[in-house]
């Protein structure tokens, strides 16, 4: 029974990951982006859980719970930790218009499929077929980083990039030891916390967090 739906579950989770990434490029509202990020974290956790159940590794299931708590709940909560009223008003004005951005996402996805199939080979397992999604997420995360002006939107791009790296790891090698995964998650959490504080300081000091206005270096 589970063997039959296993490839479909993998495909579903991977599709959810790609879809959330693409939607993040499309949506301009910060609140929407954070919700999509939470969804993406949940999808990633589900992906890890599915792989863990299929391979019978209880360790991976624990990792999936860790991911769910950090990437599905923790990080989005930290990012959204501001009064709902003000966060709803925050609208990103990206450096790339939505149509061009979505076209770029398409190109990047195709590119990652080409690269993975040429360089590593897709293999015949269902996880191998989904591996290019991870690379596509990395590239999309990078695209978010360079196309967003606000510090917090950039942070979301960074998190998508990190999710992409995690996706590749789980799909190609069945994950890393739990200790390492734990350390990575904590690292990311720490980075997000620091940047969040930093963005807050920027806002109080300069009245905005538009990164492209920060050009001059001072002593």
């Amino acid at each position: 029974m589970f063997e039959n739906i296993y490839p479909q579950l993998i495909g579903l989770c991977a599709g959810a990951l790609l879809l959330t990434s693409a939607l993040m490029v499309w949506r301009h509202s910060l609140l929407a982006s954070i919700r999509l990020l939470a969804l993406q974290g949940i999808a990633l956790a589900a992906l890890v859980a599915v792989i863990g159940i299929a391979e019978g590794e209880s360790e991976l299931v624990i990792v999936s719970l860790l991911i769910l708590s950090v990437k599905g709940i923790g990080l989005p909560w930290v990012l959204a930790h501001q009064s709902k009223a003000s966060i709803k008003q925050i609208q990103e004005s990206p450096r790339l218009n939505p149509t061009a951005a979505l076209l770029t996402v398409t190109v990047l996805t195709i590119l990652s499929y080409i690269v993975v199939s040429r360089v590593f080979g897709l293999g015949d397992s269902s996880t191998g077929h989904a591996a290019p999604i991870g690379l596509a997420m990395v590239l999309i995360g990078f695209l978010l980083l360079i196309s967003r002006r606000r510090a917090r939107s950039q942070l979301i791009g960074f998190l998508v990039l990190d999710n992409g790296i995690a996706t590749i790891t789980f799909l190609t090698s069945g994950g890393v030891p739990i200790l390492l995964e734990f350390a990575f998650s904590l690292d990311v959490l720490l980075v997000v916390l620091i940047l969040h504080v930093f963005a807050g300081r920027m806002r109080t000091k300069f009245g905005g967090t538009a990164v492209d206005q920060l050009r001059e270096l001072h002593d």
């Binding site: 980083l145 360079i146 002006r149």
Partner: peptide, 9 residues
């Protein structure tokens, strides 16, 4: 030119 976006690009 000091623009972080340019460096990331």
């Amino acid at each position: 030119n000091g623009s972080i976006h340019r460096y990331l690009s």
